[in-house]
């Protein structure tokens, strides 16, 4: 199966994190593939978001390793991981509420050297690129609005746009379909598919099964902090372990 899916982009080895006595992530060894839309599913409380936060450096894992493109990124600062090309969005949509929609994108660009921090933020070429991305997600008419003034669905798109502005090789989406209406879910799915076709790798965490089954090339199923199954969407749906975890059969 590994032959079919190609190179591994992101890999964890024995990743563990406990809070008090709760093993939120428990010895998780996983693989996610480059150029694919990878999925991570699991019932509520199965440790998906903690896993996600350990991978992106927001939480320090107790044990184990994270490899991104064969580099050990365990315990790296989150900003360094982002700069290595691994972008992310948050479960409950997070934008910079008092910055304009355009500035929400512009802050995501890394200055080439520290002195560039003294320059002005609105570099023409960057503004143009930001407008291109905003047009792509359908927010270009809102660029001067403050992010807190746009709707929740638009904030979700804005968050994705900001993640793209950083120019990542791989984007991790934490519940992109959470709390948004079906039309927007469809729109996000189309965007992810298109961007993937252009070469961006995705890892999507979601418990909306329908959304995931249509979208993902490869799905890892989590239960109690560790993967219990991995394979194509069709494969994992047939897996008795998965059915048990979800339905408690």
């Amino acid at each position: 199966m590994t032959e079919e899916l190609g190179a591994v982009a992101l890999r964890t080895e024995g990743l563990s994190k406990s809070f008090g006595g709760v093993h939120a992530v428990d010895n998780a060894t996983t693989e996610f593939y480059a150029g694919r839309i990878n999925g991570l599913i699991g019932p509520n409380g199965s440790g998906k978001t903690t896993f996600f936060n350990c991978v992106t450096g927001m939480i320090r894992p107790d044990a184990g390793h994270v490899f991104y493109r064969d580099r050990d990124i365990t315990r790296w600062q989150p900003h360094r991981i982002a700069r290595a090309g691994l972008g992310r969005t948050f479960q409950l949509c997070r934008v910079f509420p008092r910055l304009t929609v355009l500035d929400n994108l512009l802050v995501a660009v890394h200055p080439p050297h520290p002195l560039a921090y003294l320059g002005r933020p609105r570099v023409a070429s960057l503004v143009e690129r930001a407008r291109g991305i905003l047009a792509r997600v359908g927010l270009d008419h809102l660029e001067t609005a403050e992010a807190r003034d746009v709707s929740y669905g638009q904030q979700k798109l804005l968050e994705l746009a900001a993640a793209l502005m950083a120019g990542p090789d791989m984007v991790m989406l934490d519940e992109p379909a959470g709390g948004v209406n079906p039309a927007l879910i469809e729109r996000i799915a189309v965007l992810v598919t298109e961007l993937n076709a252009e070469g961006t790798t995705f890892l999507v965490v979601e418990h909306n099964m329908e959304f995931m089954m249509n979208l993902c090339d490869h799905v890892v199923v989590f239960d109690r902090g560790a993967p219990i199954a991995a394979g194509s969407a069709a494969e994992v749906q047939q897996n008795p372990l998965v059915l048990e975890a979800y339905l408690g059969v």
Partner: peptide, 16 residues
């Protein structure tokens, strides 16, 4: 200002 608005988010976008 991005740090003021949401520090975790700023970090996740690559801001040191």
């Amino acid at each position: 200002k991005a740090i003021r608005e949401d520090e975790d988010k700023a970090q996740s976008l690559g801001i040191p």
